[in-house]
Write a protein that binds this DNA or RNA. Structure first.
Lengths: 142, 142
DNA sequence: TTCCTTGCAAATCGTTTGCATAATG
DNA sequence: CATTATGCAAACGATTTGCAAGGAA
């Protein structure tokens, strides 16, 4: 598996690269089809996995049963709005401290960590009425 | 939906109650069948969801594509061994601090959070050779 | 030419759901 | 009796995979 170059893979990566949200495979598929109308969902998935295994992107498991993708591989946390489902990045100082604190009383070796914060996003707080097409999903999986 | 009592639901909960690991629906299904050989997977799922919505148990999304269940609903974090897949509880001081730190520079309202730590568990560290039937899955979804 | 990639469609697999019947209050 | 819960099997939906054909080194 010497990994050859492919236009489709580039397209998938480029689509993800300049995005601040965290799209799912379907969204990426739809987006890339503008440029490559014949690309298949399978190819999108395969490339997403290759990109992840290569360390170019990361997967984000929000707990809604669908995998989200993120081109920002730097260590950062995510916030999931329980009202609209939006996934945002969450900057946080002393993010390293958390890992240290956890490692303190743990016998195994901790190599990484990811945290998910749930709540109501700024936008949803503003419009007090909740979107008609979407019911709250307070606790899914997390 | 007045929620009547059911033996099967009790069985599901009791199976989960005295467990420190975080079994999946399939494991719970297999376990409960000792007592109720005719119980169906669907019933197990339905009851697990009821128990979750009732706050009796919580779901844990490890990132392996399968939902894990935990009867310990107290606020605590989890550690996932990337070598054997084991999911352990991870005690951690100042767990509240983390939420505060995160809330500091965030515009929305944070109601809850869950963190997942990845690494190699104590047991796997001991036996340096990795189990033959399982390959490393360093980064799945997280 | 060799081997990786693609597109397509079929296959997986965890989870959900419709329905007729059984259990509960 | 009025409802909720169950078992079974079929339905779902996201992700994966086999295969023949196309593209890159």
């Amino acid at each position: 598996m010497a990994l050859k170059h492919s236009r489709q893979r580039d397209a998938v990566y480029n689509f993800l690269k300049d995005r601040k949200d965290h799209p799912t495979a379907d969204t990426i598929y739809a987006g890339v089809r503008d440029e490559y109308p014949n690309i298949s969902l399978g190819t999108v998935y395969r490339n997403l996995m290759v990109l992840r295994d290569t360390g170019k992107i990361r997967t984000v498991d929000v707990g809604d049963g669908v995998i989200h993708f993120d081109a920002d591989t730097s260590e950062h946390n995510h916030f999931i709005c329980t009202r609209c489902g939006r996934v945002e990045d969450l900057e946080m100082e002393s993010i390293d401290r958390v890992k240290e604190i956890a490692a303190a009383n743990f016998a195994g070796k901790i190599t990484g960590y990811s945290a998910y914060f749930y709540g109501v996003c700024e936008r949803c707080l503003a419009e007090q009425k909740e979107p008609a097409d979407r019911q709250d999903r307070e606790q899914t999986t997390g």
